[in-house]
């Protein structure tokens, strides 16, 4: 690494130490890891240490088997997953640092999504109702770490056209506008999927809104005024919405969309 990365280098060193500790089944206590901070209070460093600690604890809690082939066993204390609130109680100064709290929230959310029963975003919004950015932040985290993968097939028997995309949420699906008539299926911001030509009957310009509510769940809303939407073969009326587990299949006009987690 270059000398310019001193801060990153220091944090990486400590993260490597945390990883090695958990891999060898003798995790280094957080108090020992933050001892070098002494009187100074480096929030970035502290939140990285706590986020990694949180991730390993949730990872261990979610594993049926030991995550390492090293000899030895984890103690009961190591197996005890920590919620964000546990860390905030231990380090109350962190409460005022929204970016650090968001990092801890992200770590718990991702680890539980990946290795335990996936939590809903709404759970974190409720738990941290004083922080406005939680919902938006976790949607962004999912878009980055586990985006929705859309395979679009034509429903016409004569066509074998197929396109695949990763998208961002909230995603609007609909027919193209005059301005969009350039052969694109996905707009540059990855938030609008075009599934039909401008003159396609039965498809609105804004037909379906797809919102992420957990790593494996979306809310599908038929936002058109009069067009139908097929969800797993069942019609969804205009104005109504459903929460669905991924993977799922939507029929919008001439297109069939298969949604799954990348």
């Amino acid at each position: 690494m270059t000398a310019a990365d001193t801060t990153d280098g220091t944090v990486i060193e400590i993260l490597d130490r945390i990883d090695r500790g958990w891999q060898s089944r003798s995790p280094v206590p957080v108090s020992e890891l933050i001892a070098p901070l002494q009187d100074s209070f480096d929030f970035d460093y502290l939140s990285e240490v706590l986020a990694a600690d949180s991730e390993w604890r949730w990872r261990l809690a979610g594993f049926n088997a030991e995550p390492s082939s090293e000899p030895g066993v984890y103690s009961e204390a190591d197996r005890n997953p920590h919620f964000v609130e546990d860390y905030l109680e231990q380090f109350p100064k962190l409460r005022g640092e929204v970016s650090c709290v968001l990092k801890l929230i992200e770590s718990e959310f991702l680890a539980r999504s990946r290795w335990c029963n996936p939590p809903m975003i709404a759970e974190f919004v409720d738990r941290f109702d004083q922080i406005d950015e939680v919902d938006q932040h976790l949607v962004k985290v999912l878009d980055e770490h586990a985006p929705i993968w859309v395979a679009r097939d034509s429903r016409a028997v004569s066509s074998s056209q197929s396109h695949q995309f990763t998208v961002k949420t909230p995603l609007i699906v609909g027919r193209c506008t005059k301005e969009e008539r350039n052969g694109k299926w996905l707009t540059n911001d990855f938030r609008r999927l075009i599934v039909a030509d401008n003159d396609e009957p039965g498809v609105s310009r804004e037909h379906v809104r797809i919102t992420r509510v957990a790593i494996d769940r979306v809310v599908i809303a038929n936002v058109s005024s009069q067009s139908m939407l097929g969800v797993n073969g069942v019609d969804v009326l205009p104005g109504s919405a459903q929460q669905l587990l991924l993977p799922t299949t939507l029929d919008v006009g001439p297109s069939r969309l298969r949604l799954s987690v990348w």
Binding site: V11, Q23, E48, A52, W56, A111
Partner: peptide, 9 residues
């Protein structure tokens, strides 16, 4: 067998 934080950093 490392943390996501380590990967990101």
């Amino acid at each position: 067998q490392i943390s996501i934080r380590t990967v990101q950093r």
